[in-house]
């Protein structure tokens, strides 16, 4: 069986700085993978390379078996039109939501469907309402984003990505900009998605979410995957001191059970 995402030898440099130094990663269909690591470890860049928000410097990425880009003289070449098409197959949710403020919630969720996929207005509206229902915001369809709470905005952003019928969903620290009491509603939506069998790659600081939801956890350090495996192993019996330190920092204070 082919993997939903297959990454081989991925490298990415920003001018002199090499952020990713050769990443191999497989994401099976229906799997939820969580990327952990301190800031600067390259986890966000890795995520952004999957849908080519950043163009990799070297390496190959396959989406459900399709190699992205064309090989030319030992290097991968990418055409903007191909990348646009690829991005319709991958959904992405951002830390700061990035909803379009000049459009209503419904228009936000319809925009990509009509403009990029060329669906009819009626079909797009139908799909949009289905996805808004799924994230529990169908009653906010006619509101402008400015009138929503952070958690609601993020759920709309998830609906906007889902409406494109993506093969994979990417989540880039989607709860980091939220008030603590709003984090739960977004994580619950993501849990629901994982249970529905959506293939997901998430960058997050929510270790608890990683433990309970992820099928696989990857710990990135200095542009490489330091440890990867089932959350029980990586999070409870880490092999390296680096991961132990990271986890200790994240669970310094805990409520007694």
């Amino acid at each position: 069986m082919t993997n939903a995402v297959e990454i081989r030898g991925l490298r990415k440099s920003f001018s002199d700085l090499e952020v990713l130094k050769g990443i191999d990663l497989d994401v099976a269909e229906g799997e939820a993978v969580v990327l952990l690591g301190s800031s600067g470890s390259g986890k966000s860049t890795l995520l952004r390379c999957i849908n080519f928000m950043e163009e990799p410097t070297a390496g190959q990425i396959r989406l459900n078996g399709d190699l992205i880009g064309t090989e030319q003289g030992g290097r991968m070449r990418y055409h903007e039109a191909d990348l646009c098409k690829l991005r319709t197959r991958i959904g992405m949710v951002f830390q700061h939501f990035n909803l379009f403020p000049h459009m209503t919630v419904l228009e936000n969720v319809m925009e990509g469907q009509t403009i990029v996929l060329g669906r009819s207005k009626a079909e797009a509206k139908d799909k949009a309402m289905t996805q808004l229902l799924r994230v529990g915001l169908e009653m906010k369809a006619e509101e402008y984003p400015a009138r929503l709470s952070g958690g609601q905005k993020q759920r709309v952003a998830i609906a906007r990505a889902l409406a494109m019928d993506p093969e994979v969903m990417l989540f880039d620290e989607v709860t980091s900009a939220l008030d603590p009491e709003l984090v739960g509603e977004v994580l619950k939506t993501m849990l629901q998605l994982a249970e529905d069998g959506m293939t997901m790659v998430c960058v997050t600081h929510e270790i608890g979410f990683a433990y309970h939801v992820a099928n696989k956890v990857c710990f990135l350090h200095d542009g490489l995957i330091l440890e990867q495996g089932a959350p029980q192993f990586v999070l409870q019996t880490p092999e390296t001191q680096r991961v132990r330190d990271f986890l200790a920092g994240h669970s310094l204070f805990k409520l007694p059970n």
């Binding site: 903007e80 039109a81 646009c84 098409k85 319709t88 379009f100 990509g112 906007r160």
Partner: peptide, 9 residues
């Protein structure tokens, strides 16, 4: 970025 992510040119 959001526009790019939903495949817009």
């Amino acid at each position: 970025e959001a526009a790019k992510a939903i495949g817009m040119t």
